[in-house]
Every structure is written in structure tokens, then in C-alpha cells.
Amino acid sequence: MALYKQKKNHKGSGNRLLISITVLGSAGPIRFVVNEEEIVAAVIETTLKSYAREGRLPLLSSDLNNFVLYCPIAGTEALSPWETIGSFGVRNFMLCKKPQVGKASIDEEKQAIVRKGNSSWKAWFNKSLNLKISSH
């Protein structure tokens, strides 16, 4: 009787796929089986849970809204969270953090100021060393 119920549930669930998701910055992909009708947002959530359960580094947040999933055949466009994972016809994906426009631009400005300050200090130091060496 239980065997009959398993067949009935499996038949209605559609095809299952073994997918491989590479998390940017992590060593090796995460692999698991999903239903081909599963939406991208659910796949991202499952990936983040598996990543945390395995204790992988770097540490990631558990908020799926901070991440995007890319497909090699879709180019540089992130996949829509409402599309089905089986609609792309591939099994390899890449998970990346969403770019943060406001915070990143402030950090880049700070780094540019620090670099500019360091480069002028380094230039002055190198110039003063060259003067001392050439005067001998």
C-alpha cells in the first residue's frame, strides 16, 4: 500500500533533476535533486540552507533576497526568482550576492581616497630615497 502511494506522489511531481550550484568564493559546487517545476527562489533558499548546514566558507546570510542565480546560457542576466529551474535545460548554475549600489559606491570612494593618499605618500618616499641615493 505504501509503495502505491509513493508511485502516485512521484508520478504527479514531474521530472527531477540533479543540479550543481557553484557559490561564488566557495570551494566546489553544491549538488542536490530538485523538481523541474521548482521556482528559482526556492532553489536559492535550498542552496543557502545546504551551504550553511555543510559549514562552508565564506559565511553567507540566509536571506534569499540578497542573492541571484545565474545560468551559463542566459548570459549576464540573473534569473527571475519566479521562473522554473527546469525551463533553462541546464543543470549547472552560479549563485552570487546581489550588487549593492549605494553601499558599494561609498566604499569605493573611501578606498580611492585612501589609495590616492597612499600613492602620494609612497611617491614622496620613493622620491626622497632616490635623491639620497643619487647624491652619494
Score class of each variant (00 low, 15 high):
R16I: 03
G25W: 02
L17H: 00
K7F: 13
E83C: 12
C71G: 10
G86H: 07
K98G: 05
G28N: 10
A74L: 12
K97V: 08
N35R: 13
A27C: 14
E83W: 09
G75W: 02
N35T: 10
S135T: 07
G86F: 08
I85C: 06
V101P: 13
A41T: 07
G86Y: 04
E77L: 10
S128F: 01
S50P: 00
N118S: 08
I44Y: 00
W124I: 05
A27R: 15
I113Y: 14
P72I: 02
L48D: 01
G12N: 12
F67C: 05
S13M: 12
Y70E: 09
S62T: 09
N65G: 11
Q100W: 06
S61N: 13
G12D: 08
L69M: 01
K98T: 14
M1F: 06
A78Y: 03
V114P: 04
L79R: 01
I30W: 05
R91L: 08
L129T: 03
K98N: 01
S105E: 15
G28L: 04
I106N: 08
S120M: 12
P99L: 12
R53D: 10
S13F: 06
R53L: 08
E36L: 02
F67M: 02
L69Y: 01
K132Q: 10
N35S: 15
A41Y: 05
W121M: 11
L48N: 00
V43S: 06
E37L: 13
P58K: 09
Q111V: 00
N66V: 02
L57A: 13
F32K: 00
K8Y: 10
D107P: 03
N65W: 07
N92P: 04
V43Q: 03
G75H: 01
E77T: 14
H10Y: 13
R31A: 11
G25A: 05
M94T: 15
K97A: 14
S61I: 00
A52Q: 14
A41W: 01
T22F: 01
Y4V: 11
I30P: 00
A2G: 14
G12P: 03
E37N: 15
F32S: 04
L60I: 08
A123E: 10
A78F: 08
H136L: 11
A52G: 00
C71V: 07
E38I: 04
Q111P: 06
F67A: 03
L48M: 00
K132S: 06
N66K: 15
G75K: 02
N35H: 11
